[in-house]
Simulated scan of single mutants.
Amino acid sequence: MTSSGIQRWEEIQHGLQHISEAISVIVNSFLVFLIINKSPKKLGSYKYLMIYISDFEILYSFVDFVVAPFFYSYGPALLVIVNLEESLFNKPIAFVLLCSYSGFFGTSMAIFGIHFIYRYLVATGSLLLATFSTWKIVLWLSFPIFYGVVWGAGSYFLCAPSEYTTEFVRENILNNFNLQMEDIAYFGLNFYGTDNNGKQFIVYEQVVGIVVNSFIITSSLSTAVYFGVKTYYKINELTNKVSLRTSNLQSQLLYSLVVQTMIPVILMHIPVTIIYTFAFMGHGMGTICGIASITISMYPALDPLPTIFIIKNYRNYVLNMFSCCSAKYESENNTASREAAVMRQNPNLRKI
């Protein structure tokens, strides 16, 4: 790709990121309104978890907007970069913000694990459910935050810029982005190094970072799958033991949560895993990695939609809102048409 093509690709990438961020704030704010004002009475403490995830996604979009990161890989090196020439912050602050952005990535899946645990506790009538109605809910909500802190700390300490990585990508970054390494902040992985004798070696501290991140993803996803499956079967068992309304609500919440969980898996974890894999094999994907920056920013914009359209109370409110707008528009059009017809039949009225 030519330098002008890369510049154009950067503009498209950042434009799509900012559009997604704006949509995320609007849609998540609307969902919070629905949760507070239109939730079924039987939703209980779960509405606080729903508000928690919407607030998290709004904050994620804000951090994405402020940091404006982009992914790039070259050979075995994978970098997440901030262009300091376009940033409001100096290099140390930009690096801290970039690692915070990374921490949000680690928190995203862990949040859904807590949601699935709650749904299972509801389905089984567990005594632990009461902890979500007391101050102990803070302990539950702290688990995803802890995962995010660990992920962000790994980026800060294990994937910090190194002299070897900086020199390895210096010329390539200059050729592709017309940026000196002093003009960017980055954290990244460089799986292989070369010693003074030209012998290649594995950078084990970065492998440790990958192992930690893999544990976070695996444990979060495993928790969601395990409790999701158990909840599904438990709801089916209870179908004939609870009211139809309660059974339908539990099913709606579970299906909504399943779709919500699939969105970050598809838009975040799969693209990044592909990029990691190619870098680990020593085949950097270059500027095409920017697709990951776009899809990650799309996650908080799309994630509220399943809740809005699967939960019946919310869906009905949205449909009624559009029906009212449509009816009002049609009424105004009909009135204008009748007035135009009267004017054609009585042209003298125009002179009044």
Rank of each mutant, 00 (worst) to 15 (best):
K241E: 11
Q7F: 12
F322E: 05
S126E: 04
I137N: 07
I311N: 03
H115R: 05
N240V: 08
Q7T: 12
Y52L: 13
M1K: 09
Y164G: 10
C159G: 10
I53R: 00
F187W: 12
S45Y: 09
I202Q: 06
S24H: 05
S297A: 15
I12S: 09
F187G: 02
M298W: 11
T218Y: 10
A327C: 10
Q200G: 10
K136S: 12
A292T: 01
I6E: 10
R315Q: 07
L238E: 11
L254Y: 02
D183Q: 15
T107L: 13
K328P: 05
K41Q: 12
F157A: 00
A153T: 01
K351E: 15
K91I: 08
E11C: 02
V32P: 01
M1L: 09
Q260E: 07
R8I: 15
G209F: 09
L249D: 07
G286M: 05
S108H: 04
P347H: 10
I216V: 14
R338D: 13
T131P: 01
L49R: 04
N83K: 02
P304A: 05
Y314L: 05
W140F: 06
S102K: 00
G188Y: 01
G282P: 00
G282K: 01
S39W: 03
V96N: 00
S133P: 11
N90I: 04
F70M: 07
F132G: 05
S3P: 04
F177P: 01
S337L: 14
T223H: 09
